[in-house]
Design a protein around this nucleic acid. Structure first.
Lengths: 188, 188
DNA sequence: GTCTATATAAGGATAGAC
DNA sequence: GTCTATCCTTATATAGAC
């Protein structure tokens, strides 16, 4: 792995644990095993690291969503299940990185912040359309779409806390989340 | 309102928007309308502000949970609904403060951090017991309890983002969340 | 690519006059 | 209770030798 990649990885871990603002370049350097000044041979600034982590993860979600949307065989319920699987997969792929993406994006500076938020809103809009479609086709209840959207996405946003403990496989987690988020906790 | 209270309120707003670590005492002072040094006539340190905000909110949740637990008339489903109402109520009561409680607690120093985490684990344990009881009495599906616990609580943890936009009343939000989280998105 | 040394800015907090 | 002035520490980032 390149030095740059090693720095990103160590940074993701630290940003996750302490937060972006509370992580110093000295700590990061210590974690990487070099002096702080040496970091700058590989990266331009602290902010650049955050940008890279955030945009990389945004890309994963956007790409995954595109594939789901293009699969016209899926009905709304199946699409929601695919979204759950996508989130579980991305979280299991790199927990630290996706946590930073979820929690530290607000420290991005313009214009990166606006770019990021544009992608985020776009993604939310895609999920919203699927929920809307589900309601129209009578696969989903007539709930408030915004409440449904947020409760669905925020549940998924915290999946990685489960993974951190490694208690459960991706498949079982996906299955359980499908059951809970789509079909509810209550026994029917 | 006392100066101390005004400082807490301004701090909660700033900590919410920028994060604890990225908020300076000079900014806080500016928001309050005094010089940074004057803050210290009312509070002991920056950390003390965070402690107060976090412990105050922890108290609200703990107290609310106690009342729910002591109401033996409620079955597990009704208790879960009461928990939803509790979270909605606390969020609508003071959005900034509860956001800081949710997102910035990791910046607490010991021993406050351990005290805080103890309360949090205790609260999660209470919810877990209710879910467990629901499964035993066959009111809830046999889902993975940990997954159910986390997806339930994390959905509720982000309610305040809805409130920030003021789009929906507390009652309608509670009703929708009950429907979605307990009975699921899918039409039965 | 890494180091030491350092520039430059900002942070939390205190002292002491009013 | 508020101010100005300031202490001390830490931060990001650069310069230049090796």
């Amino acid at each position: 792995m390149s030095s740059k990649e090693l720095i990103y990885q160590a940074a993701a871990k630290l940003f996750k644990e302490k937060g972006y603002a509370a992580t110093s370049m000295r700590e990061l350097a210590l974690q990487v095993g070099i002096e702080a000044s040496s970091l700058y041979n590989h990266i331009k600034s602290k902010e650049e690291i955050l940008q890279e982590i955030c945009l990389r993860n945004a890309g994963k979600f956007t790409d995954g969503m595109k594939i789901i949307q293009e699969n016209s065989n899926l009905n709304a319920l199946q699409k929601l299940e695919s979204i759950i699987r996508l989130h579980v997969q991305i979280a299991s792929d790199d927990i630290s990185s996706v946590t930073v993406f979820n929690d530290e994006w607000k420290h991005l500076k313009e214009p990166a912040l606006s770019d990021f938020l544009k992608l985020r809103i776009q993604y939310e809009q895609s999920v919203k359309s699927i929920i809307q479609e589900g309601i129209e086709k009578e696969l989903l209840k007539k709930v408030d779409i915004e409440v449904a959207l947020f409760s669905f996405l925020t549940s998924l946003r915290w999946i990685h806390y489960k993974f951190a403990k490694g208690r459960i496989s991706s498949d079982r987690l996906t299955e359980n989340l499908k059951n809970i988020l789509i079909f509810g906790l209550a026994k029917s």
